[in-house]
Design a protein around this nucleic acid. Structure first.
Lengths: 162, 162
DNA sequence: CTATCACATGTTATTTTATAACATCCACGC
DNA sequence: GCGTGGATGTTATAAAATAACATGTGATAG
């Protein structure tokens, strides 16, 4: 994977702080709600947080296995289910993959993703206010989930692969 | 599958005409561009057109096989690839499934989908003007594909399953 | 005419993604 | 203690997608 600009746009920050913030938010939220932020769940989040890149369940699984958490698919899927359910990570439909949430302190937000097919970096933005939701409301449709993703090339990958 | 309201909202029309229009559009477009609208491709489109419901590749494959077009996955995936490439069908990311396009005469449009998880009906709308695209443009990101889907319950399925 | 090329299809195998199902373990409340 | 619920361990399988290579067919340049 190249270090494209989408990645850089997002990594052009104190990423260590980024990780600490997200982990602390997760700790605080789980302490508060009493849910069990177990080692494998924490480690899964840490792995996702290492970069703003989408990780497949099996990629995550490899990492977890290397860390001694077991190598069977349910290990990864259970951890991911937990993280997504509590808003610490998001599923990127276009990639069948997962990214750590960069806004763990805004529960209930509607994430949108800008996905570089070159470097697989994923920038999270806000998807609220999608015209589709208004369309849905008009016909009495109850929206439960919004998927909003754009895929393309970040500036760096554009230059790299013309 | 129940006959939910999303489906009805969309099927409350002369569906026979709907099918004929789409098929004629496909025939016209392929004649014009010289691409080969072969029997299996045509049949795949007909099957997708039978309802405004998303069909998995393997569901489609079963139907094609029953019609004598062969039962191997590539049969379905190749037909779908053709249909999607030429804008006669769309892929619904959220479902890993496919629907016939209801606007085959508007090449290059950006489809958005309203998906009922009760009846699996899919209403196609317009996804252009998504805020995400502006966000992307701002950081010099070249958008190649926009995915915009909302999932929930249509009015009928809401009543049916409270 | 026939060699060749592009495209479509046939066929086998494999990869990638995801879940089902059931056993075990352990902390907690009573 | 002992039952209950959540978490984990484990085996198996389902579902979605593609790789790779063989074969057929129709247009056309030589």
């Amino acid at each position: 994977m190249t270090d494209g600009a989408t990645a850089r746009a997002v990594t052009m920050h104190d990423h260590g702080l980024c990780i600490r913030t997200a982990l602390e938010a997760a700790e605080a939220a789980t302490r508060k709600s009493g849910v069990n932020f177990t080692p494998v769940r924490r480690r899964a989040l840490e792995i996702l947080l290492e970069s703003h890149v989408a990780l497949g369940a099996y990629d995550l699984l490899k990492r977890l296995d290397a860390d001694g958490f077991g190598g069977q698919p349910p290990v990864a899927y259970r951890a991911l289910e937990f993280l997504v359910k509590h808003g610490f990570a998001h599923r990127v439909e276009r990639l069948n993959a997962f990214v750590a949430c960069v806004r763990p302190n805004e529960p209930g937000h509607e994430p949108g993703f800008i996905i570089c097919r070159g470097c697989r970096a994923v920038a999270e933005t806000d998807a609220s206010g999608a015209p589709l939701e208004a369309d849905a409301a008009e016909i009495g449709f109850a929206v439960e989930r919004t998927v909003m993703e754009v895929e393309g090339l970040c500036p760096a990958c554009r230059k790299a692969a013309p």
